[in-house]
Design a protein around this nucleic acid. Structure first.
Lengths: 325, 325
DNA sequence: GGAATTCCCGACAGAACCTGTCGTAAATTC
DNA sequence: GAATTTACGACAGGTTCTGTCGGGAATTCC
């Protein structure tokens, strides 16, 4: 076919689909002379599409990232994946980093083949995604500021309202932000306490980025940090109990609640941090197993209170008052 | 500039970026004669790019979805959003529907400008996403089969292991699948029970799609259904209690646990379905409020058991045995 | 119903480009 | 050092591109 436009685009398509390709192969695919292929390569370079080339045995052409995106030649399957990927972006909370999401959706909507568009809509229709009822909205502005400060290695200050309602002002070297369990967390080094701390971004106010910089640990892994630290994050009580339950069953029951389990004395030792004891005590009670409290002493008091409340609740129903109409 | 290839691509770029554009405007942008623009439109149509055109006042050109994707002319911001969107696809569990995700990531990796590529990596590095520790893996095959059956309106059969371990074989008219709270659910009309049922896909085995079809309710909304039904899904016990707690506080505390709350007698009436009572009873106990059990009677027994267990746990620590080294 | 506006297209002349071929240079690998 | 590949200029012959001109068709608005 005589159509330079089509051929040039085909060269680009092959380059995008492959890591490298020789001039002879391109000439064969296009059914033109090798010299013509070389002219096409020059044409693409003139379009600011950066193409690397290497001479000699095994010589080839390859694409390299440039300053501007070249025309994308995507297969229908690739476009489907991209279109599908834009939807959950909002739900995971990342669309704040990609303000062009809506515009991109519009653009794809214009060019996606009808059958493909129909497939995307079908998946959306029959496959529903619900983040969960406890997803907490975080200020987009705060999230972006935090991410920018981390990227630029700048210290930050903000007002913080902790779990017990106490307000404080913090001066932090931020290491990472993490979307976990429906909430955004900031992980960093607290300069006041000289220790690592974790903050819920929805409790942050009056966010400021300092000019002062710091050196962020090069290999800091937010996920690993949270997995190791979460059970003890910001806890008023360090809990240590023994339960008459095999380690396997304990792991199934308690791991999701961020409780450290280890086998001991024919049962399992449970350790975790908690701000309030009732919830944890109730969780243990719900297992129906024997429990031995090692620490804190307050936990025994809590069980005493629960015993009283449970006993009262086990009595036959008392009428509070006549039912209103 | 004299470069037909460039000009043709520019026409395509403008068409992708705009809903519609006139020939005169294109001619002005490209600095060519209107007739030349019309020739370019013909060129693009020859490349199987479907372009609609309308004559008369307000006449214009516009792209319409065709059978094959045209070369995509994306801005850097749009490419950034698309690249970012592919990552959460796995975590939300949708990559099963888009097997081309990895290939698309590779292709974008080849062409994304370095600065952009760096931004994507930076966001990925400082912004971590963790689905939550209780996300349950579902068979990808099962998920896709379910979605396909729904789309095709075909009945399905499968083995099901319910929460209490009982195994059964089900014959279902599937309406939707839903990703909710870290799990995939199938919602459908059970032909054996003649009623709507919800199934966790990770408990499904031996999945078969029938040839028999059915008529799916046209306006079925999976999210709405789950919001209304979830508290009572597959429950052995229908719980009805009163608690000495204001409605506002009750909503904050119990809504995340899928408990229906309504103000009553100065406190709150709580209703929900549960397969096991211990967890719910423990949850109530943890509030420290007065509780009145209306139904079921087993719940009072549960409170009695909890009272006994709590009393035992409140005693000073007893040594189970000597601590091993 | 007619004017104005837009897409649509063929024909023409002049200008510009495309392609295969040939020869030579440079770089790389074996 | 041979073989292999990219790189490029020069040439001839063929092909395409562009602006211009004129006319047709469809649509909107007054």
């Amino acid at each position: 076919m005589y159509d330079p436009v089509m051929r040039v685009l085909t060269v680009l398509e092959i380059l995008q689909a492959r890591d490298f390709v020789s001039g002879a192969e391109l000439a064969e695919r296009l059914e033109v002379d090798l010299r013509t292929v070389q002219r096409y390569i020059v044409r693409l370079k003139d379009l600011n599409i950066p193409i690397d080339s290497s001479r000699g045995v095994g010589g080839a052409y390859r694409l390299k990232p440039g300053f501007r995106l070249p025309p994308l030649l995507l297969t229908n399957e690739e476009a489907f994946a991209l279109s599908l990927g834009l939807r959950p972006l909002r739900q995971v909370g990342l669309s704040a980093f990609a303000p062009a999401t809506e515009g991109t959706l519009a653009k794809l909507g214009r060019v996606l083949p009808s059958a493909l568009h129909e497939s995307v809509r079908t998946v959306e229709e029959v496959v529903a995604i619900e983040p969960g009822p406890w997803v907490v909205s975080t200020s987009v502005d705060c999230l972006i500021k935090a991410a920018s400060a981390i990227r630029a290695a700048h210290r930050i200050r903000f007002g913080y309202q902790s779990h017990d309602g106490a307000a404080s002002r913090r001066h932090i070297e931020p290491y990472a932000v993490l979307h976990f369990d429906g909430r955004w967390y900031l992980i960093g080094h607290c300069l006041s306490r000289c220790a690592m701390r974790t903050f819920r971004l929805d409790r942050v106010t009056d966010f400021e980025v300092s000019k002062a910089t710091f050196r962020r640990p090069a290999d800091f892994d937010a996920r690993r940090y949270m997995q190791e630290r979460m059970p003890f994050v910001q806890s008023d009580y360090q809990i240590d109990v023994w339960i008459d339950m095999p380690i396997e069953e304990a792991e199934r029951n308690f791991a999701p609640w961020r409780i450290v389990t280890e086998p001991q004395d024919g049962g399992t030792r449970l350790r975790c941090g908690r701000d309030r004891l009732e919830m944890f005590a109730a969780l243990l009670l719900s297992t129906g197993k024997q429990i031995v409290v090692r620490s804190p002493p307050e936990l025994r008091k809590t069980f005493k209170q629960l015993a009283k409340a449970a006993k009262q609740a086990s009595r036959p129903e008392q009428r509070i008052s006549k039912r209103p109409l």
